Amino acid sequence: MTVQLPSEIVVERFLPTARSMLAAALAERGFAQREIASRLGVSQAAVSQYLAGERRGEERFAEHPRMQATIERIAEGFDAGTMDDYEALAELLELVRAFEDRGPICAIHEEEMPALEGMGCDLCVRGRDRAVQAEREVLSNVRRAVRQFANADIADHVPNVGTNVAMALPEATDETDVAAVPGRIHAMRGGINVPANPEFGASHHVATTLLAANVADPTVRGAVNLATSDALLAAVPDDADAVAFDAEYEDRRRRLDALFDDGVPRVVYHEGAFGIEPIAYVLGTSAVDAVEWATRLVDRIA
Rank of each mutant, 00 (worst) to 15 (best):
L259T: 13
R221H: 00
G284R: 12
V142G: 03
M188A: 11
A290L: 11
L169P: 01
T209S: 04
D289R: 01
A196P: 05
R126E: 06
G191S: 06
V138Q: 06
L232W: 11
A223K: 03
E250D: 07
A202E: 04
V298N: 11
A172R: 13
A98S: 11
I276T: 10
A90C: 08
E171A: 15
S140V: 01
G183R: 13
N164P: 09
E250L: 11
M67C: 12
Q148L: 09
A75R: 02
P182I: 10
C121I: 07
A145G: 02
N225S: 09
A27D: 05
V142P: 00
A258H: 05
A69D: 10
F99S: 09
A27V: 02
T82A: 12
N193W: 13
M83W: 05
A231I: 07
A131I: 05
P159R: 07
E76W: 10
P218W: 08
E250V: 07
Q68N: 06
E248N: 08
L232R: 09
A202R: 11
D79R: 15
C106N: 14
R97C: 01
D251E: 13
L92Y: 11
R128L: 11
D289Q: 04
A258N: 02
E8Q: 12
T163Y: 00
M21R: 15
C121N: 07
D239G: 08
W293I: 15
T295I: 14
R300T: 12
R19N: 03
F78E: 11
V224S: 10
G190C: 03
A212G: 06
N214R: 14
V158W: 01
A45K: 07
H204R: 14
R13G: 02
F31A: 04
A280N: 02
T82L: 12
G183Q: 13
R128M: 08
R97I: 02
R300Q: 07
G275S: 02
V268H: 12
V288L: 13
A202M: 09
T82E: 07
E277C: 04
A152C: 00
M83Q: 03
G201H: 03
P218C: 10
R126Y: 08
G275Y: 02
A223G: 07
D153W: 02
R147K: 06
V220T: 14
L139I: 01
D261M: 14
L116E: 00
P237V: 13
I36W: 03
D261Y: 12
S48E: 04
S140N: 02
N193T: 14
T208E: 14
G190P: 02
P195H: 05
E171L: 09
A25H: 03
G275F: 00
A46F: 05
R252V: 03
E54L: 13
A107D: 13
D261R: 15
A152N: 01
F245C: 08
H205L: 15
H186L: 08
G272L: 08
I9P: 00
A207Y: 13
V138C: 05
Q44K: 10
D262L: 09
V236D: 02
